[in-house]
Computed example of a mutant assay.
Amino acid sequence: MKTLLASFVIALTLGTSTSFAKNEPIVTNNSFQSVVYPSAESTKLNVIVDSKSNNSLLVRLLTTDGNELATQRIVKSKRATHVRFDLINLQDGVYKVEITDGEKKEIKEITLSTTVPTPSTYRTIALQ
Results as ranks from 00 to 15, higher is better:
Asp86Leu: 05
Val9Met: 09
Arg79Trp: 05
Ala70Met: 07
Gly102Met: 03
Lys96Phe: 12
Thr13Asn: 02
Phe32Trp: 11
Ile107Lys: 13
Lys105Cys: 06
Ile107Gln: 15
Gln72Leu: 00
Arg123Thr: 15
Tyr37Asn: 12
Val97Ser: 11
Glu98His: 11
Phe85Leu: 05
Pro119Lys: 02
Leu69Gly: 01
Ala6Asp: 14
Thr118Val: 06
Asn89Ser: 14
Tyr95Ser: 02
Pro25Leu: 08
Leu58Glu: 15
Ala126Asn: 07
Ile125Met: 09
Thr64Ile: 10
Ile110Cys: 05
Lys105Asp: 01
Ile48Leu: 11
Pro117Leu: 03
Val35Trp: 04
Ser42Thr: 13
Leu112Lys: 10
Asn29Lys: 12
Val27Ala: 09
Ile10Trp: 01
Leu90Thr: 04
Leu45Gln: 07
Glu98Val: 12
Asp86Trp: 00
Leu87Ile: 02
Thr124His: 07
Thr13Met: 11
Lys52Gly: 04
Thr115Phe: 15
Leu12Ala: 06
Val59Met: 05
Ile125Tyr: 09
Ile74Glu: 06
Gly93Trp: 06
Val59Phe: 04
Asn54Arg: 13
Val27Trp: 10
Ile26His: 03
Ala6Phe: 12
Val47Gly: 05
Ser77Ala: 14
Ser53Phe: 10
Pro119Tyr: 08
Ile110Gln: 04
Val36Lys: 07
Tyr37Val: 12
Thr121Glu: 10
Leu112Met: 04
Asn55Pro: 00
Asn30His: 09
Pro117Phe: 02
Ser7Thr: 08
Asn29Ala: 00
Val36Tyr: 10
Lys2Thr: 14
Thr16Gly: 08
Ser51Leu: 06
Arg84His: 06
Ser53Cys: 07
Ser56Tyr: 12
Thr81Val: 15
Ser56Arg: 15
Lys78Met: 08
Pro38Tyr: 02
Ala80Tyr: 03
Gln72Pro: 04
Leu45Pro: 01
Thr124Asp: 03
Met1Gly: 13
Arg79Val: 14
Arg73Cys: 02
Leu62Cys: 09
Ala80Thr: 10
Met1Phe: 11
Asn89Lys: 15
Leu45Cys: 04
Tyr37Ile: 07
